[in-house]
C-alpha cells in the first residue's frame, strides 16, 4: 500500500518539477511582456500546487501526521495569482501605453488604467525605453 502512495507522491513531484521549470523557461522564451505574463501565473501555480499536495500526502501517509498548512498555502496562491497578474498587466499598460494595441471598450469610456493616468498627470516611472522583443 505504501508503495502505491510512494508512486503517486513521486509522480506528483516530477509533474510539479516539470511544470515549474516550464513556467520559468516560458519567462525566458516568450517574446514580450504580456505573453510572458501567461507562463508564470499558470504553469508555476500547478507546479507549486503539485509540490504542496505531494507534501500533504507524504506527511499523511508516510509520517502519520495530518497537516493542513499546505492546503492553506495552495488556497492563498490560487487566490493571489490572479491579483498579481492583473496588477502587473495594469502596470505594463500604464508604462507602455503607446506600444500596446488594445481592443476598444465598446462604449464611450476608456479602460480604467488610461482614465486614471489622464486624470492624475503625475510624474510616472516607466521602463527603460521601448518594449523591445528580447
Amino acid at each position: 500500500m505504501d508503495l502505491a502512495f510512494e508512486i503517486i507522491i513521486s509522480g506528483l513531484l516530477i509533474a510539479a518539477g516539470v511544470f515549474g521549470i516550464v513556467g520559468s523557461f516560458g519567462l525566458l522564451k516568450l517574446p514580450d511582456t504580456m505573453t510572458r505574463l501567461h507562463a508564470p501565473t499558470k504553469a508555476t501555480t500547478l507546479g507549486v500546487g503539485g509540490v504542496l499536495i505531494a507534501s500533504m500526502l507524504h506527511f499523511w501517509v508516510l509520517e502519520n501526521t495530518l497537516s493542513w498548512h499546505e492546503l492553506l498555502i495552495t488556497m492563498f496562491l490560487l487566490l493571489t495569482a490572479p491579483i498579481t497578474a492583473n496588477l502587473i498587466a495594469k502596470a505594463h499598460l500604464h508604462s507602455f501605453r503607446a506600444d500596446e494595441k488594445t481592443s476598444p471598450t465598446g462604449s464611450d469610456r476608456d479602460w480604467a488604467t488610461f482614465e486614471d493616468a489622464a486624470v492624475e498627470q503625475q510624474p510616472m516611472i516607466t521602463g527603460s525605453g521601448k518594449n523591445q522583443n528580447t
Binding site: 504580456m34 490572479p82 492583473n86 488594445t102 465598446g106 462604449s107 476608456d110 479602460w111
Partner: peptide, 28 residues
C-alpha cells in the same frame, strides 16, 4: 469572473473599462 479568466486557458484579465461594462483580456 476576472480571477477565473486569469487562471484558465491562455487568457489574462488586464483591465476593466471605466464604467465597469467590459473586461480587457489578453490571449496567449
Amino acid at each position: 469572473l476576472a480571477g477565473t479568466i486569469t487562471m484558465t486557458p491562455g487568457t489574462v484579465t488586464a483591465d476593466m473599462s471605466g464604467d465597469g461594462r467590459a473586461l480587457l483580456i489578453h490571449c496567449l
